[in-house]
Design a protein around this nucleic acid. Structure first.
Lengths: 230, 230
DNA sequence: GTGTTCAAAATTGTATACAATTAAAAATTC
DNA sequence: GAATTTTTAATTGTATACAATTTTGAACAC
């Protein structure tokens, strides 16, 4: 019987979470020996996991200098959100012409079932997971596993920023409430009537709006990231 | 002074090339010891490189069973080409509204300079490199390094298929000649006049046309891949 | 004080050894 | 002879050791 989760998997998961939450500060050099002690594994499996994270864009690597946390700049955030637009809009376009009525109905059901949770969610993490799952399921409707894979990767790297964004939305409460699913429903309605251009435009403007908010929020993120160690 | 290229880099490059050219057959299990001898490195750096390739989608991995060559199915090819449409069309859209006139002019110059090479190219590899560089440069015009990164990855994984496709184009000579850059020029012209929808549609139909050819060519690829070892 | 050089310490790079696991082969049962 | 168990071999998983390289910092010159 094969062990479900190996040590490398465990290390990888822990590292991905740390990288996603910026437990490493941008551009910080990562000390392998210290990290391997913290994670309870030797450097060999640790480095394998680190290499995976480099390939996925969570970390960077320099010869003979080791692994570094990715930088966090406004243009990096912009790039990630633009990539999301590319992936999600094309997936939606494909879904409009290829997804079955049954699958779309299932997606609509899902949104109906989730809406109460969405509006009553208290934890930001919970809210973010719900939002992520909407977008993930949308891309899954395309049936394209490469697009799905790309979105998962982008979501992982963008997660921290979205958390900051959501937090600000809740605290300020000036624009739409964090639990507002109207934009999602607009996309769904257009998808249901197979109106490609309306669906894509609705999704595009939704993501771009979030991008603008996030770009603003990243300044706040910066100030939080560089809080001195205790 | 830092060594330019490390051993892992060398191993990684060799492996990527092997994977891109399907030197490993689809679903074939990869023997680490044997491979490390061939590549002249121990298993430690080899496995680091293999892990990177898994993260990039060139290989797969199963716990306690090791690394395998990715499968090659028609739906996999479809997914890759659709992902290319997503990445390239969005990059083009961004380039239309953001690239400077100077950069676009530089791109036009590049196409002019390359056209003679394109038409006189005898080696398929050379032709493919020229075609890839057109698409890469187009995406670079967007200034989005995530989209560029995604395209590089897709190109690497799609390379073998395109080679088969080009080969068939040359051998059959029924449709357009392999050196035909008219589709590329159409995209460029629309970009130059900042006509977003015309540019995107031209690019989309170009890639999709290639996808159809490639999907057809993949059957030939299959028969070539499974030639028995000698 | 600033910059340079050199030595010491820390860190990364990789080979190797051995444990854990899986795959293959041989023996056994029916 | 087919199916099952047992044994053996091969392969992967990971710790460790040590070499190569980089970083640190102390001594020194100016």
């Amino acid at each position: 019987m094969a062990k479900r989760e190996s040590n490398v998997d465990r290390v990888y998961e822990a590292l991905r979470r740390m990288a996603a939450d910026f437990a490493f500060k941008p551009d910080q050099r990562i000390n392998e020996s210290a990290l391997s002690e913290v994670l309870g594994a030797s450097r060999t499996p640790l480095r394998e996991a680190l290499n995976r994270l480099v390939a996925e864009g969570f970390l960077t690597f320099q010869n003979n200098r080791g692994f570094f946390c990715r930088p966090l700049t406004p243009s990096y955030i912009l790039d990630l959100y633009e990539a999301r637009v590319a992936v999600e809009c094309e997936a939606l376009r494909i879904a409009c012409s290829r997804a079955s009525d049954v699958d779309i109905a299932g997606f609509a059901d899902y949104l109906d079932r989730m809406e109460p949770d969405y509006q009553s969610a208290t934890e930001l993490e919970e809210l973010l997971s719900l939002d992520e799952s909407f977008h993930t399921r949308l891309v899954q409707l395309s049936g394209n596993s490469e697009l799905e894979r790309m979105l998962k990767n982008l979501n992982g790297r963008i997660r921290y920023i979205r958390l900051i964004d959501l937090k600000r939305m809740r605290d300020q409460a000036d624009g739409q409430a964090p639990g507002d699913v109207s934009a999602h429903r607009k996309v769904l309605d257009a998808l249901r009537s197979r109106n490609v251009s309306a669906a894509v435009e609705a999704l595009r403007s939704h993501i771009e709006k979030r991008r603008e908010e996030a770009t603003e929020a990243v300044r706040i993120a910066f100030s939080q990231l560089y809080v001195p160690d205790e």
